[in-house]
């Protein structure tokens, strides 16, 4: 079998991988992009519109993949790397398709998974059909299949984030603003329904987020209740009865809703299997720990292996693309010095 030779292998064809591939190609590096699925785009494919401006998510994916096509950057679809070992300064990667790839550097753009809330049983996911995740809601919004005229929908923040009970202490960063975005979309879908966000903290930290929150309140009349959902049961009419504490009013609250959306958090995607000699340090939340989070955010503990996008922690799409571009600089720098 012939060994394919590249300077850089990018693992993961999401927005991070695609952005990095284009940048690296521009700087003259011989690069290949590897994606496990049938199509490029990664998690962003699961989104209908993105915050804060309701731009269709497909636009972003299409724009990035068109660049790849234009530059004729090699892409291996439906390929996942099963094993990586180091060989005199280079890396040998083996894929499930049987390919062997030798590369000087590896850029990990494996991204994230969303939290599976079935372990958080008290929220009723997988038990009551009207409890769904934010990802499932995006699909329904996209295909316009979210049932008929619910009277009230609640969105629960921090499901699988900031929760010691599911061993996930980190904040997933995007769920707060995603919830506000989805609340507005739901309100536009069902103008007569009441849409309620149940939050612990609202982290509207980036440009346009706070404005979106304001809009949600003023233009769309989204209700915000500060309290963490503690349990969800059914009444006789098979509506969902939520028990929460309205911590600002200082009173316990019973709330009947037709649909419950769980804003599932981000958790690290599984990395390819590395040879024992390769050590990739991880942070406590399971994502890759950068060598220096301020000055070298894309360098891992293993020289020649880099990370970008949500591989090193939750990020927005915008941050992911910037991070991917910064990673390509770090990779070029490494290749030049070699």
């Amino acid at each position: 079998m012939t060994t394919l030779k590249y300077q850089t292998v990018i693992i993961g064809g999401g927005v991070a991988g695609m952005a990095a591939a284009t940048e690296l190609h521009k700087s003259g590096s011989k690069v290949v992009l590897i994606e496990g699925n049938k199509k490029l785009g990664g998690q962003v494919n699961n989104w209908y519109k993105v915050f804060p401006n309701f731009r269709p998510a497909s636009e972003i994916v299409n724009s990035l993949s068109t660049n790849l096509l234009k530059d004729k950057i090699p892409v291996l679809l439906e390929t996942s790397i099963t094993h990586i070992e180091s060989n005199s300064g280079n890396y040998i990667l083996k894929s499930n398709q049987g390919q062997v790839i030798e590369a000087e550097t590896v850029l990990l753009a494996t991204g994230f998974n969303t939290f599976d809330p079935s372990g958080k049983e008290e929220y009723g996911y997988g038990i009551y059909p009207n409890v769904l995740t934010s990802v499932e809601l995006e699909q329904r919004l996209k295909t316009n299949t979210n049932g008929i005229s619910p009277k009230r929908i609640a969105l629960v923040h921090c499901v699988g984030s900031r929760d010691e009970k599911v061993n996930r202490l980190h904040c997933s960063k995007v769920c707060c603003v995603s919830a506000v975005k989805q609340a507005i979309e739901l309100k536009e879908f069902y103008p007569n329904a009441e849409i309620i966000c149940l939050y612990m903290d609202l982290r509207m930290y980036d440009n346009g987020f706070e404005e979106l929150y304001r809009d949600a309140q003023l233009q769309h009349n989204i209700k915000f209740i500060r309290g963490r959902l503690s349990e969800c049961a059914l009444n006789i009419e098979k509506d969902l009865v939520l028990k929460i504490q309205d911590t600002l009013a200082g009173l316990p609250m019973k709330l009947t809703v037709d649909q419950l959306i769980l804003m599932v958090g981000k958790e690290a995607h599984q990395l390819p299997q590395f040879d024992e000699s390769i050590i990739i340090e991880k942070a406590s939340h399971g994502f890759i720990k950068p060598a220096d989070s301020h000055l070298n955010p894309n360098t891992t503990s293993q020289p020649g292996i880099f990370c970008c996008g949500t591989t090193s922690g939750p990020k927005t799409i915008q941050e992911t693309i910037s991070d991917a571009r910064s990673a390509s600089l770090a990779v070029c720098d490494y290749l030049n010095k070699k």
């Binding site: 049983e121 008290e122 009723g124 009551y128 349990e231 969800c232 049961a233 059914l234």
Partner: peptide
């Protein structure tokens, strides 16, 4: 049981 609704269901 309130926290394990799947048992009740």
């Amino acid at each position: 049981g309130k926290l394990t609704p799947s048992v009740i269901e």
